[in-house]
Amino acid sequence: MDMTDHPAKIVQVADVVKTYQQGSVAVHALRGVSLSVEKGEFTALAGPSGSGKTTLLNIIGGLDKADAGEITVDGNRFNEMRDSDLARLRLYKIGFVFQSYNLIPVLSAVENVEYVMLLQGISRKERRDRSRAILDDVELSGKYDRRPHELSGGQQQRVAVARAIVSNPAIVLADEPTANLDSETGRGLLEMMREMNVSKSVTFIFSTHDRMVMEYARRLVRIRDGQVADDILK
C-alpha cells in the first residue's frame, strides 16, 4: 500500500498485524489490516465481539503497538516514535471516548474537560473558558460543577466527548460510545457527535456493533476475523 503522506488522509494503516498471547494460545486479533481515513470522516469500524475493531482503534490511537505494519496519524509515523512521542501525539492530536466514559471521578464536569488542556500547559482562564463553551455545545450548560456520579450515563458520555474534542484534535476515536446507553440517549449522543463532525470538521472513528451507530456513520468498515471484510462509503 502507498504510505506517502497525504494531507487529506488523517489516518493511514497498512498491513497491520497484532497477535495476543492468551496463555499458550495465540489470538490473531488483526491479520494484515489496511485502511485510510480522510479528514472530516465519520467512520464506524463495525464487527462482532472479538473481530479486532477495538484492537485496531487502540493501535490507531497509539495505545497499543502493532506487531507488523505501518500506522500514520496526521503525518506521524508510529514506527519511528518512542512512547513519549506517542503520549505527546495523543495529547495534542487524538481525542478518546471510551465505552464506560472513564471520567475522573474526583473532578467536576468542567475540570474533566479542562484536564487535557492542563496537561497541554494552557492557561487557567483559557482552559476554563473553552471548557465551558464546549460543555454548552454538548448541552451541559449549568452542569459544569457536577461530579461524574451526579450525572446520568448520557451526560457523562457527553462530558467525555467534550473532553475529547476540546483541544481540537486531528481525530476522535470512540470505542463503542453508545454501548452503555439506552437507545434514545445513544441517538442523542450520535446526533451531537455528528453535529460536531459537521460544524467543527472533527474526524470521528468509532468501533461499534450497534446497528444504530452503523446507520449514523457516513462510512462503514466491517471487520471480521481481524481483517477488513467490507468498506462502504454512504
Partner: peptide, 15 residues
C-alpha cells in the same frame, strides 16, 4: 484503570 485513561489522554509516565 484511571491511570490508563490518563495515559490515553496523553499523560506521560513521569506525570
Amino acid at each position: 484503570r484511571e491511570f490508563g485513561v490518563l495515559k490515553a489522554l496523553g499523560m506521560r509516565p513521569w506525570w
